[in-house]
């Protein structure tokens, strides 16, 4: 598995343009993205206002109006906060558990053989399938949700971290040894930095998993959260609430994913794949 195994396409080849001022250049650079976003809302508006024309499909304006109302009343922040808190706690705990395990799997063959049966069997059980057992074990409080997020995070981060360790070219290790690095220094100054882009890629994929899991878990057993908003919206026919929740999920996912992409670029920008 390589870090390129993500949902994004490679950037297109840049074509040289005539010289522009810095502000104009920035505008030209982000213009396609702005048009892309606008087209999303225009399509939504056209579909809702002209094609479907039903109360079951609110327009973007109605949805944002409802969202503003819920935000001003504080309701929206409670739901977003509940979901985000679970995601962040579970995701952080899951990554903290997974990174050392992944590093050890990649570094020690015996450890790999010992742990592989666990990772290879458990990772095919989707976290959503564990919701019922998590509720039975941990109740409908925070524990069950955090357990599920940890579960959704751990395997993908382990696999990517281990793949990162095995992808280090032997000459990088040997060079360090011939320059006098101790075993520990080889790990800290070569193994770890070379693996960081892979770890971040694993975390980025795990974050997407965490969103899926939290919504499903909250729909089944929770008092607050974006998943609860979806479920209540269905129970009480509050269509606009459902759409507000969906938009929030899309926006939160987008923002966290961008943050990870920035981190990966920062750490891995110099990490030319051919080297």
């Amino acid at each position: 598995m390589t870090p390129s195994k993500t949902a994004t396409l490679p950037p297109p080849i840049a074509i040289p343009r005539p010289a522009l001022g810095p502000i104009a250049r920035f505008l030209v650079a982000i213009l396609p993205s702005i048009i892309g976003f606008l087209s999303l809302f225009v399509a939504w508006h056209v579909a809702a206002a002209y094609l479907v024309q039903s109360v079951l499909f609110p327009t973007p304006l109605a949805t944002f109006g409802k969202g503003l109302e819920l935000a001003l009343s504080g309701q929206l922040w409670i739901q977003i906060g509940a979901s985000l808190k679970r995601i962040i706690l579970g995701f952080a705990a899951g990554s903290l558990i997974a990174i050392p395990i992944g590093l050890a799997i990649g570094s020690f063959r015996t450890f790999r053989k010992l742990v592989e049966p666990w990772t290879e069997c458990l990772r095919f059980i989707p976290s959503v399938a564990l919701i019922t057992i998590a509720v039975i074990w941990f109740g409908i409080g925070e524990e069950s949700k955090i357990f599920l997020i940890i579960y959704a995070t751990v395997f993908i981060v382990i696999l990517n971290t281990a793949a990162g360790v095995s992808a280090i070219t032997p000459n990088k290790i040997r060079a360090a040894q011939a320059l006098g690095a101790t075993r520990w220094q080889v790990f800290a100054f070569v193994g770890l930095p070379a693996t960081v882009p892979y770890i971040l890629t694993g975390m980025r994929l795990a974050m997407a998993n965490a969103f899926t899991t939290i919504v499903a878990a909250e729909m089944i057993a929770a008092n607050a959260g974006l998943g609860v908003m979806l479920w209540d919206g269905r129970m009480f026919m509050m269509i606009e609430e459902i759409f507000v929740s969906l938009v929030c999920l899309g926006a939160l996912g987008f923002i966290t994913d961008r943050l990870f992409r920035l981190a990966i670029l920062r750490f891995a920008g110099r990490f030319s794949p051919t080297m």
């Binding site: 070219t169 000459n171 990088k172 060079a175 930095p193 070379a194 750490f267 891995a268 110099r270 080297m275």
Partner: peptide
């Protein structure tokens, strides 16, 4: 080769 340099 040059794969022994540290690209980071």
């Amino acid at each position: 080769g040059d794969d022994s340099l540290y690209p980071w």
